[in-house]
């Protein structure tokens, strides 16, 4: 496996929609502990909207598919998740405009642009107990594996492992961004819902491309 096709991307988005629907209550419970009990509901509503829009762009380039995904999320998710995941997918799409398939390096550029989109919009740093704690180490692991000569599926596997670790590492942290920061010390001891949805989204990418 050394290319990512448009079909992979469409399949990925469909898988994300399914995974988020399955984890709707789990994500919402995580958000109930340190936020306002809506993250799973928001993400599920957003990806239901993405599925509606996907039919119109299925045969377009990957950039268009991802930008359409971002716009659909932006106008349907709301909360913090809406602008953050909206920016993630829009920036991902803008990094691969016109392309119908991607090399592993191009996927790396897409992932980097996606994370940067989240950071630019939300201004969170590593350790603030947000989705950035899952996303940033994940992209770094992916890039590093390719640089060391690893193949696509090794890079994606390590990406998911790093995302999982980043997600779990949010548990002891005190939140500095987002609603959870209002709880101060009481936010420690809970896993961040946004980091969890980010992990699920990246895991779905690996599973779609590499099984």
């Amino acid at each position: 496996m050394s290319t990512i096709t448009r079909e992979h991307i469409v399949q990925w988005l469909e898988n994300v929609a399914q995974v988020l629907a399955e984890n709707k209550e789990y994500l919402t419970e995580l958000d109930a502990a340190i936020g306002d009990a809506d993250h799973g509901i928001n993400m599920d509503r957003g990806f239901t909207k993405v599925m509606e829009r996907l039919d119109g762009v299925r045969d377009k380039d990957i950039g268009t598919i991802l930008r359409t995904t971002g716009m659909a999320l932006l106008s349907s998710v709301g909360g913090a998740g809406g602008p953050l995941y909206g920016s993630l997918f829009m920036k991902a799409g803008m990094a691969v405009t016109g392309k119908h398939e991607l090399t592993p390096e191009e996927l790396g550029k897409l992932l980097r642009a996606a994370v940067q989109g989240v950071i630019d919009r939300g201004k969170a740093q590593l350790g603030d107990k947000t989705m950035v704690d899952a996303l940033l180490p994940a992209v770094e692991a992916y890039e590093k594996t390719l640089q060391e000569g690893g193949d696509l599926c090794t890079a994606l596997t390590r990406m998911v492992a790093a995302a999982e670790k980043g997600m779990k590492d949010t548990i002891p942290l005190v939140a500095k961004k987002g609603r959870a920061s209002y709880l101060g010390e009481r936010s420690a001891g809970h896993q961040d819902p946004g980091a969890t949805s980010s992990y699920l989204i990246l895991k779905a990418l690996k599973e779609t491309v590499c099984g």
Partner: peptide, 11 residues
């Protein structure tokens, strides 16, 4: 108005 306790969207 957004959904209950959820910010509305830019559009």
């Amino acid at each position: 108005p957004g959904e209950v306790f959820t910010s509305p969207t830019p559009d």
